[in-house]
Design a protein around this nucleic acid. Structure first.
Lengths: 235, 235
DNA sequence: CGTTCGATTGATGTCAGTCAACCCGAGTGG
DNA sequence: CCACTCGGGTTGACTGACATCAATCGAACG
C-alpha cells in the first residue's frame, strides 16, 4: 500500500502532502518523507460512514480534503453532533493508544479524502519524534477548548444564544469577508444545525427567520447566510 | 523552592510522590526523582480560586489531594461546571504550549494540595521523555471522552436522563459498594449539580425526590445518596 | 412537469424555569 | 438552654419557551 514515489491522491503536487498537516509541521523534509511512506489514502462519498461507534479503528485518520461530522446518538435516539472537522483535522486518536472501541460515528458531509496512519506506526512516530507528540497535545487542547465552549453554550437555556454561537463559529471557519458583511457557507442543513445545538429543526428555522427580520442576517438560499455585523451577534 | 531530600507536602512518605501521578507512571526511579525536583507544592482552602479565567498560568497543575471544580460562566451569567477533578488529575495544559490565557475558572471544593510544574520545565520533560507526552495524550483523550458524553447528555432534553448520567458518573468515581447498593458521597451541592447539568437547583431537588419515590435511590442527609441498582438507572 | 426533500409557518401541549413560601440543621449568642 | 439567624434544601403555583404535529411551500433534479 505504501507509495515509494509520487502521490496518488490526485491532489498533491508531490508525495509530501503530509506537510500540510499541522501535527507534522515540525518535521524536516526527510522525516516528512518517512511519514509519507506510512500513509494510506482513501476517499469517501457524501453520506458515507468513516467510523462507526463500536468498531475498532486501526488508524489515525487525517482529513486531506472535505468535511466530516462527528456524532453520537442521545439516549432519546437523536443525533448529537460533536464536531465538524475539515482539512488538516485528525481523529481516531482515542483508539490509538489503548485498544478501544470508537465512541462515536464519523460521516462525510461531502466528497472527502483522508490519510490513514496505522496505529502501530503512529506510536513509533510518537516515540521517535517527541515534537509530534507535542503537536498532537496542542491540537487536542484546541479541540478541548472548542468542545468546552460547546458545553458552555449548551448550558445556556436560550436557544437564541446557542444559534448565535454556532453562527459565529461557522463564520470564523467558513466565512468570507464581503462588502456587506461576512458570507458564511453553512456546512450543515437546518436539521444538522439543530442536532449540533441540541434543538429541533423547526426552532432553527424560526430563530433564523427572526434574526433576518431583526436585520442581523440575510439568508441566501438554504446554504448561505450573510452576517452583517459579527459583533452585534456576539451581543 | 526545589527540595533536595524528603517531601514537604506532609502526605508522602518520600520525595517521589510524583509516582502516584498517572502521567509520570512510565518513569523509573531516577527519572521520577528528577521530575520531583521540578515540583513546587501548594495548598488551597475550600472555596479558594486556583485559576481565574483571563489569567496567564505559568504551570501545569496536578492534584495531589482534594477536589476542584472547573467552570465557566454562560452568556446568561450562570456558572457552568465542566469537570470535577480529584487526586491524580491535572490541568493548565492549555496554557503550557502556546502562551494562552486561561479559558476557565478552577476552584477548590475542599482543602486541596497541588503540585505545580513550571511551563518551561514541563516542555523540556516532554522533549526528553516521549513517554510522558504519550501519557498526556492518553489522559487528554480520556477527558475528551468524558466531556463528549457530557455534550451528548446535554443534547438530550430530558433533565431526568442528565441527572441519571451524573449520578452514574459520581457513582463510578466516588461510590463505595455496600450490601444495599452503592453509596455515593456527592462532591457538589444541589446547586452545584444543577450547574453541572445546566438546570435549576429546584429541578434537581424535584428529580431526586422523584427518584427516591420510585425506589431507585435513598437520600442520606444532603451529601450522600444510596443507589440501589446502577443498571436500573442506566435504563 | 412531477417528484422529492428540505425549509417554513401555524396551532397546541408540556416540561422545566421562576418566584415564593417554608423546612431543617448548624452555628451563634444571650 | 433556648431563641435567632443563616444557608441549603424542598415544595407548590404559575408561566413561558420550545417540542411536537401537521400543513404548505419551494427549490433541485430527473
Amino acid at each position: 500500500m505504501n507509495e515509494t514515489s509520487g502521490c496518488t491522491c490526485g491532489n498533491c503536487q508531490h508525495r509530501l502532502c503530509a506537510k500540510r498537516v499541522p501535527i507534522f509541521s515540525g518535521l524536516n523534509l526527510e522525516e516528512l518523507s518517512r511519514v509519507a511512506d506510512l500513509i494510506v489514502k482513501r476517499k469517501y462519498e457524501k453520506g458515507e460512514l468513516i467510523i462507526m461507534e463500536g468498531s475498532y479503528p486501526e488508524s489515525l485518520i487525517i482529513i486531506d480534503k472535505g468535511q466530516v461530522k462527528v456524532f453520537k446518538y442521545t439516549s432519546e435516539g437523536k443525533e448529537q453532533i460533536l464536531y465538524i472537522f475539515s482539512e488538516g483535522d485528525f481523529f481516531g486518536e482515542k483508539n490509538l493508544l489503548r485498544n478501544q472501541v470508537a465512541t462515536f460515528y464519523v460521516e462525510a458531509l461531502e466528497a472527502t479524502h483522508i490519510c490513514m496512519i496505522n496505529k502501530k506506526d503512529f506510536q513509533k512516530l510518537l516515540r521517535n519524534y517527541p515534537e509530534i507528540g507535542i503537536k498532537v497535545i496542542e491540537e487536542l487542547c484546541i479541540r478541548m477548548e472548542k468542545i468546552e465552549s460547546t458545553v458552555q453554550s449548551m448550558g445556556t437555556k436560550s436557544i437564541e444564544s446557542r444559534i448565535n454561537a454556532v453562527l459565529l463559529d461557522f463564520a470564523g471557519r467558513y466565512g468570507r469577508k464581503n462588502p456587506r458583511g461576512v458570507l458564511v457557507e453553512l456546512p450543515l442543513s437546518r436539521e444538522g444545525i439543530a442536532n449540533y445545538i441540541g434543538t429541533a429543526r423547526e426552532t432553527v428555522s424560526r430563530k433564523l427567520s427572526a434574526l433576518q427580520d431583526e436585520g442581523m442576517i440575510e439568508m441566501i438560499g438554504n446554504k448561505k447566510i450573510l452576517i452583517f455585523n459579527l459583533d452585534e451577534l456576539r451581543e
